[in-house]
Design a binder for these strands. Structure first.
Lengths: 100, 100
DNA sequence: TAAAAGTACTTTGATATCCAAAGTTAAATA
DNA sequence: TATTTAACTTTGGATATCAAAGTACTTTTA
């Protein structure tokens, strides 16, 4: 039995943050409102989770106007991508332990 | 983009509880002290996480004496196994979303 | 036989996290 | 000018986390 969860990331334990990173690894960028719809969270909750990912250096933020409306785009950083992949690897280790 | 995390289990968001379930799916039973060593947690922390899994109906507890010392064995329930597998499935969906 | 040690807790208390709801700011539109 | 939309921030209450200390029972050791 190995049980090495050294790659496990406390930041990504949270469902919303995990989903955000998942989306931002699959997509170059994604905006606030689209995230909100996809994740079914209040805007306050989404904003605070985005802020914590930003604080952690996992994502970057770009503000602009699109169609004359404010638009906030989020992108993963390299660090964020690495952390997400590491976290998934840790989870995969758990799974492999079961079936492998 | 699907993002169906309906199988995601809040109880198993916690690292320690996830590891406990992982061990109890791979092994018929496991005792308190062995879990403690494997997971590197204080006994208070372990006990409270075990209790919450028991309360949730994910594990059962058997107390006995082994070598004249108290020994507490834990086993997964069917419900616990199902929940663990469902949770992993939800996580696998996330992963597949990336690479599949 | 009294003290120490081991097992498996429970309790305490301090901190951290979570999250909905309400409030805010600024621009666009009616 | 009032309303709406986007994207927050703030507030406050609930819940979670976790180390440390305390407890109960038993066995071992001095």
């Amino acid at each position: 039995m190995s049980l090495d969860l050294s790659l496990y990331d406390k930041v990504l334990e949270n469902r919303v943050r995990l989903q955000i990173m998942s989306i931002l690894v699959a997509n170059e960028h994604y905006d606030f409102n689209s995230l909100k719809e996809l994740l079914d969270v209040t805007d306050g909750n989404l904003a605070s989770n985005l802020k914590s990912l930003e604080k952690e250096g996992y994502i970057t933020v770009e503000k602009s106007f699109v169609d004359r409306k404010p638009n906030t785009k989020y992108r993963r950083t390299e660090k964020g991508k690495k952390s997400f992949e590491n976290h998934l690897a840790a989870l995969e280790n758990l799974i492999k332990q079961q079936y492998g």
